[in-house]
């Protein structure tokens, strides 16, 4: 039996979403196979691109492939970053082996450095005839950002975050950190909670970071999981209660109004999120806001409510970050939007 104490002691490890702990690798067989093939066939100056949302396990996958000898990249070398390339261009030359690995080509990098860094990478690859593996988010799908990289191949079979995958990952982690030979996730987690954490309509944008940071916070909270010898069991109600009592939200008046409108709308039209397909456009959400009495123009609504909601992980952007070129704004989290796990679980 896994107790609350066991769970609390291993909380950060089991629900780790960074490189801080050595977590067991699970799944992604198709991605591994495709990556090996693409990498083996990479031509000089070509780049293998992995463009997936933040926190979905790109860096973890590449690290695993290198450490298990599935990618011909010397072990132990720290990955380059796009920002780092702009600050220390000589780091590209110093990177060992034939193939550079460049990470963080994403919205966490200032757009000027993103564009400049990718340009510098492209130039260096042409000059040196070396190759690269480039990890980033959907920013890489914007030609105004990544256009300098002319010779690219993309990983297509990265794999989505579905319930089966999430279960497998969790089971491996529980077995590893708690030294268990046999384990089923249903022993510590309500089936319905798993349904909420990995809904089908969210599988292409759902992230380990989103799921595990939430579970870590719930488990760390004494109100929900006490440090005792009782059987550990996480439920939807627990997570719902945690989110409803989360002091960090702190919405202003108009934001609170829209939040309530949106929640009502979701409950009515998409209970538990079922039926959501492509996500909501700005205009749809604006109509909802206007009809609900929110008195802002479209730009104000977008800047004061929508974008902050996306940044605060109430909405998840499924669009490609927008950038028209030098001098224009970088819209990191554009529409369409789907509700985040955080919002969905607070709705029930």
């Amino acid at each position: 039996m896994i107790t609350n104490k066991d769970l609390k002691m291993c909380n950060e490890q089991i629900f780790s979403y960074s490189a801080a702990y050595q977590v067991p690798f699970f799944g992604r067989e198709d991605a591994i196979e495709e990556m090996q093939e693409l990498n083996n066939n990479l031509k000089p100056a070509e780049t293998l691109v992995i463009s997936q949302p933040l926190g979905t396990g790109k860096t973890f996958l590449v690290n695993y492939m290198i450490s298990s000898g599935k990618l011909d990249v010397p072990t132990g070398a720290s990955f380059l970053t796009v920002r780092g390339i702009t600050e220390e261009p000589e780091s590209m030359e110093a990177f060992p082996g034939d193939t550079l690995v460049v990470d963080e080509a994403d919205i966490k990098t200032p757009v000027k450095k993103l564009v400049k860094g990718l340009g510098m990478l492209a130039e260096y690859l042409e000059e040196s005839s070396r190759k690269a593996i480039l990890l980033g988010d959907y920013s890489l799908k914007n030609q105004n950002i990544s256009g300098e990289l002319k010779k690219t191949v993309s990983l297509l079979k990265f794999g989505d975050m579905d319930k089966v995958f999430l279960k497998g990952v969790l089971e491996e982690r529980f077995k590893h950190f708690l030294d268990l030979k046999e384990f089923q996730i249903e022993e510590v987690m309500e089936e319905e909670l798993l349904d909420y954490l990995a809904p089908g309509w969210m599988k292409s944008v759902n992230s380990f970071r989103g799921i595990f940071s939430l579970l870590q916070q719930v488990v760390a909270n004494e109100k929900y999981v006490r440090y005792n010898g009782e059987k550990a069991f996480l439920t939807v109600e627990m997570v719902h209660d945690f989110l409803c009592n989360d002091d960090n939200l702190q919405l202003d008046t108009e934001q609170r109004k829209f939040f309530e409108l949106f929640c009502e709308y979701m409950k009515e039209m998409y209970p538990k999120g079922s039926g959501i397909t492509t996500g909501f456009k700005v205009e749809e959400l604006y109509d909802l806001a206007k009809n609900g009495g929110i008195n802002k123009n479209l730009q104000e609504f977008t800047e004061d409510i929508l974008y902050p909601f996306a940044t605060a992980d109430l909405l998840v952007s499924t669009g490609v970050p927008e950038y028209e070129g030098k001098g224009s704004s970088f819209i990191r989290r554009p529409a369409p939007y789907v509700p985040s796990l955080r919002l969905l679980l607070s709705l029930m």
Binding site: P110, L249, E303, D304, I305, P308, F330, R332
Partner: peptide
């Protein structure tokens, strides 16, 4: 610049939805 500033705002705001 404002783009860098928007990243600082994200960092400072944490889970609070704050517009730039």
């Amino acid at each position: 610049d404002m783009d860098e500033f928007s990243l600082l705002v994200e960092e400072a705001a944490g889970k609070r939805p704050v517009s730039v």
